[in-house]
Design a protein around this nucleic acid. Structure first.
Lengths: 210, 210, 210, 210
DNA sequence: AATGAATGAGAGTTCATTCAT
DNA sequence: CATGAATGAACTCTCATTCAT
């Protein structure tokens, strides 16, 4: 994990250590959940002493914040990079879904920490993460709106997008690569159902929402 | 909440009290999450003393178990009752979605306690709840399979059903009756997208899975 | 167990019930120790409700008091009855030992409750039991003194008697009827060692104590 | 108290602190008994915070285990050292009694914690302490058997040794240095009575036991 | 940079006991 | 006579965090 997206230059020792700790912490939060995980668990898994951990972050909450921020930022960076080359509205929605699944299947532990520990953070930390999440949601919603406009479709944006987010955020409770194939396969299946779904809905001019 | 489904006759004082406590506890778990919620919170919210609570259940875990069991059993009872009168395969899938949303919009606090505190329970309790959850999943999967067979459709059952569960289980993170309308409206929208989606997917004979 | 030594007439229902409860309680105290034993244990073992127990005694302490008092009084009554027919000093000491072992092998659970929960009781209860214990000790000490005087023996009374009490009070930690024979056999062996011991000690006129 | 018999080199700060805590705990257990003594009592007596205590041992049970193990091991080490220089069978039995009394009069609080909290420990802890106790008992029994063989005596080994253990384990309920003299005096008296006792018993060839 | 030692606050749970019925 | 329901107080133990070194 590459924390500190601020610099692209060689990371300092501190940054490398921190990244290592965040990785271990992600695994522990994945396993036991944020509340159940104790600082002692983190100490054990990272090999640092309990007090040593506090050199790298001020509190358990800050640690969760750093993890969530990192993964939100990274998935969005990758999304933006990927969308640069795609213009077709439907393909852009597919790109979003594929990007999400590809990244989070590769980082499935982080994935659960993002979706399950959704509302743990309070105050400043909570607000920042909520903002990132909203931004990510808006990215997806925009792509769907673009497609709707381009094809003159008719469905409830919010419910459709939220339904899609549900599908892809719930993945961590069931996804098994041996049963379900790789990320590409799952992304194609989910994209197909979702896109055929919204493209086929046609209830006449009264339905829908901007 | 009507605990003790064994008898339909007048509930005893104990049963009524227990039901009242489970209701309060559900609200507290909804608000703070199971781990963060303390027995002292439950004491406060229920008006009973800390020790008094233990007259009604042996442990905090047992309490969560009682809640989860109750709601799983009830939603399945209602599903079975509703399916009695429906024969058309598509309508039966719609009935499932509608039943789920109707019940859990009416009991949205319990809803979060079911989906968020998914894997808290261990051992016997965990096994029992997992069995109920599997049974509920199987109900839905069967209905989808019936539809697939009836219409000779072509899609990945598991991914489709899991995607649907994601959509309806994620609801508790965003549903707002003032914005999204009542349960009927949401159920119709989600059903439309899902059903059009799976009915339109046609990738040729190589796709799909039993 | 026959509580309430005050009347020799037909015991009332209350007395019979109380005696039954004391018996059960003795068994529980024997098994778990006084501190570890809970009122719920007593409720379970006696078949009465928790609150029902309090009709028979005011507190857990009083219950222990009643048990200890009963067994101390009974063993002393039996001792006095037995000593009536014995005049030889040595035989009187043997009678004490035999009486003690016979009674407490027959009531070995009570026996542990007497010796292990020695110093639990406080205040009035503690004082009364301590007085009974002192009386019992004095009985034994007198017999030993009589023997010493009659035979003009020479040993430290207090240490000898305390040593004897140790031997017979420690019994509950090791006595096993299948290995050690019945009470008579053990009493004879212990009496032999003790009596030969004190009768053979002769360190000249400076030793001993009144 | 010198815990950690593994090294005879300078004890670490941790070891010294632990030893200090065990000392305080021994005093508290002596005073109130293991069950009645609370962790708060130990905290108060040792000057550490409640949580601080848990830096040194994992549980109240482990604490009792550490205490009991220490004293059993130490008294046996001392016994073995002392027996090295004694060959006469009678003197060896006297050495055992003297060693026991000397050590436990000097550590009379620990003494009660050993004998009164005999059967508190369960499972692994209980098994280990029981094994040490058995070893200590065997040491004594061997010495008595040696004497019996050397002198061709005739008495029941088990009852005699158990009686002796009763005498010396019961000491903590009555011993008062001002009344009873020092350990040497008491040891001599008890040894005299016991040894004269077993040496004088002669009931003919049918008596005794291997 | 890193740690052993320490802590205040609070967790879930159990206790002997009471009281309305 | 007997009980289900209830409680205040106290229990052992764990938590995230700090600080001297």
């Amino acid at each position: 994990m590459n924390s500190g997206a601020t610099t692209r230059l060689a990371p300092t020792r501190f940054e490398r250590q921190l990244a290592r700790i965040l990785d271990h912490a992600t695994a522990v939060f994945y396993e036991k959940g944020y509340e159940r995980a104790t600082m002692r668990d983190l100490s054990r898994s990272s090999g640092l002493s309990l007090a040593g951990l506090y050199h790298y972050f001020e509190s358990k909450e800050k640690l969760l914040y750093l993890i969530q921020r990192h993964y939100f930022k990274t998935v969005m960076e990758r999304l933006n990079a990927r969308l640069k080359d795609v213009t077709d509205p439907e393909e852009r929605v597919r790109a979003f879904i594929h990007n999400h699944l590809e990244y989070f299947v590769a980082n499935f532990k982080a994935y659960k920490v993002l979706s399950h520990e959704d509302d743990v953070l309070r105050n400043q930390f909570g607000a920042e993460i909520a903002a990132l999440k909203r931004e990510y949601y808006r990215s997806c919603a925009s792509l769907v709106e673009d497609l709707k406009r381009a094809r003159q479709l008719n469905f409830n944006n919010r419910i459709a997008v939220m339904g899609l987010f549900g599908s892809i955020n719930w993945l961590h409770t069931w996804y098994n690569p041996r049963v379900d194939g790789n990320a590409d396969a799952v992304a194609r299946e989910i994209s197909d159902v979702f896109l055929k779904g919204i493209c086929s809905v046609a209830r006449g001019p009264e339905g829908g929402q901007t």
